[in-house]
Structures are given as C-alpha cells and as structure tokens.
Amino acid sequence: MITKLIKEAYPLDLLLLADPSEKLVKQYVERGKCYIAESNEETVGVYVLLPTRPDTVELVNIAVAQHYHGQGIGKVLVRDAIQKAKQYGYKIIEVGTGNSSIGQLALYQKCGFRITGVDKDFFKIHYDEEIVENGIVCVDMIRLAQQL
C-alpha cells in the first residue's frame, strides 16, 4: 500500500465516512493536504493534514473504505500522517474525534497520541443532524496530540 498527495478529485465518499458534513470537509480539504492510500490502484483510505498554528498540524480526517476495515489500514494511515508531519517540520500533531468513536480513540492512543482536552458540545454546535456511533450520541470532541 502506498500513500500519495492529491490536489484534486478528492475521494469525497471516503472523507464523508469520517465527517458527515460535506461543507466542512470541502473547507478543510481546500486548506490542507489530502493523502490517499492505494492498493492495486484502488483508493482504500484517505487522510487530511491541516496546519492550525505555528509548528502544529491537525489530522482532521482519516477514513478507510468500509470493505477494508479491520485490516490495519487505519494504523498505517495514522503512522504515515505522523511521518509526513515530521517531514514538514511540525513539532506537534493533533487529532480530534467524537466521544462515541471508541475504536478511533484506541487507535490514536496506540499510535502515541495523548488526550489533551474536550471541546464540549462540539458536535451539537457544528452539525445539524445527530451523530450516533456505538449506540452513543456523539456530542463532545475529544482532543489528542503528540510531540514529534
């Protein structure tokens, strides 16, 4: 599997798996760097790195095609994002995920991220429709970061 930077023809269907707001996805994809993962010329995953502050970049979207779930591709993408952030000279990489995203919270911590805070009511404020994962209403954004 390889990852590559893309500048157009973003895999919106994959990006919307991680963030249901097409409006927000389009905004941050245009401001960030979008990478896709390919296997046998098929796009199997995607992530976006978005500069947020001096020396800091945020992994704002990471998604794997549903028929590839459970194969370790998410971990490969997170590790690739960390490496790319280092190559670009960032000192900190951040990521945020919903309080209901149990698998993602575990993945990020396994990849070296630590919880740094909670944005209370983030998903109530920024999303029109209720998001439910794992039988839990997604209300708060859990923030994680790691020093590079």
Rank of each mutant, 00 (worst) to 15 (best):
M1A: 13
L5N: 09
I6C: 08
I6E: 04
K7T: 09
E8P: 06
A9L: 07
Y10T: 02
Y10P: 01
Y10S: 04
P11Q: 14
P11C: 14
L12Q: 12
L12W: 09
L12E: 09
D13S: 15
L14Q: 06
L14K: 06
L14E: 07
L15G: 07
L16M: 10
A18P: 01
D19I: 02
E22C: 09
E22Y: 05
K23P: 00
K23D: 08
L24D: 08
V25A: 08
V25R: 14
K26F: 03
Y28W: 05
Y28G: 07
R31P: 00
K33S: 11
K33C: 00
K33G: 00
C34N: 11
C34K: 14
Y35E: 04
I36H: 11
S39D: 13
S39T: 01
N40R: 13
E41A: 15
E41Y: 13
V44C: 11
V44S: 11
V44R: 12
G45A: 15
V48A: 12
T52H: 08
T52I: 15
R53S: 12
P54I: 04
D55L: 10
T56Y: 09
T56L: 10
V57M: 07
E58V: 00
E58R: 10
E58H: 04
L59W: 11
I62E: 06
A63D: 05
V64H: 11
A65Y: 02
A65K: 13
Q66A: 14
Y68L: 12
G70E: 09
Q71D: 01
G72E: 06
G72W: 05
I73W: 03
V78K: 05
V78T: 05
V78G: 04
R79H: 04
D80I: 05
D80S: 15
A81K: 05
A81G: 06
Q83K: 15
K86S: 11
Q87F: 12
Y88V: 02
G89T: 02
Y90M: 10
Y90I: 01
K91G: 07
I93P: 01
G103L: 13
Q104W: 01
L105N: 02
L105W: 00
A106V: 10
A106D: 07
A106C: 07
L107K: 04
L107V: 01
Q109G: 03
Q109V: 00
K110G: 00
C111N: 09
V118Y: 08
V118K: 13
F122L: 01
F123H: 05
K124E: 13
H126T: 01
H126E: 07
H126A: 05
Y127A: 12
Y127Q: 09
Y127N: 11
D128F: 10
E130V: 03
I131G: 08
V132Y: 10
V132H: 13
E133T: 04
N134G: 10
C138S: 09
V139H: 11
D140W: 05
M141H: 12
I142L: 03
R143E: 04
Q146H: 01
Q146E: 01
L148A: 08
L148D: 07
